[in-house]
Amino acid sequence: MSTPVIADPVANPAAEPAVVTGAPTAAQRVTSFMPVIALVALLAALTIADPDFLTQRSLTAAVRTSAPLVVLAAGATLVVLCGGIDLSIAALCSLSTVFFAMWLPDLGGLTILAVVAAAGAIGAVQGIAHVVLRIPSFVVTLGGMSIFSAIALVISDAGPIRVIDRDATAWLNLYVAGYVPMSFFVAVLVVAVVSLVIKLTPLESFVRATGYSESAARLAGTPVDAVKVAAFTVSGACAGLAAVMLASRNFSGSPTMADNLLLPAVAAIVVGGTAITGGHGSLWRSLTGALVVTLLRVGLPIVGVPSAWEQILYGAIIVAAVALTLDRSKVLIIK
């Protein structure tokens, strides 16, 4: 097209500025590493308070404790990235520990797969209810939380079920390279694999577009509903895997075993710097967040903080961590 009629777009460069604002500032770059900085600072503070803390033994214990929380938080992070929330993870995890203890005598080594698959399917049902019935994810999973707790109580006769066959999960208590507990290694592996799959495929732009602006994602023809259902499925499956870790460590399944992990998991996600409004964040961030949360829970009693103060400090540190880690340039609305 070289007809003289065409207005040369370069002819009026002053008409509008090409870029309204510049590249990310140094402060913004630091902010994106803030969760890691917070983790290191916390580790340093605990070591100063009690020099014995920084030993291989207590660190190994800490990361082993963190494994179920890492998996729970990582799964729920996907739902949060899509702009939703999954409140059912802890209750589903408790229910899954009951499944595990009940199915182990019959299924043996296949129990792990069965529990993860069942929990994933339950997550998928919640996702389908959310997209088909158009009910907010907050409500669907709040209802799910209640239902799963009740089912767990009913099928377990409201008490713990002992795990007798310990061979099936004995491998989870091994160590990788001598020091890294297998359960933590598996947790990191899950984060790595899911992150990699998202990163290398169009899923990343689907998830982020859905989280930032669902209407724009829909009008661009992206499979918004399928992505959301997938996120809930992975979140459910992660709850199942976390249940396997918990049940194998406690040698029992219990209808309330993981119930106290819901708020730590949500805390791990936000401390990691994932925007609760969706779009911005990653599973790696939640891994870091889960480590921060675990260090607080494990470390504060070790350094001699009285248990009453522990909760105050815990709450204050989480709020402070979010204040530091939240990248406000990426989050348009703080709600």
């Binding site: 169009p202 732009s205 209407s215």
Partner: peptide
Amino acid sequence: IEGMVGPMSVADNMMLT
């Protein structure tokens, strides 16, 4: 609101569909 995803890159927006 509906046309673009503001925080995502030019490339991601262009290739979204």
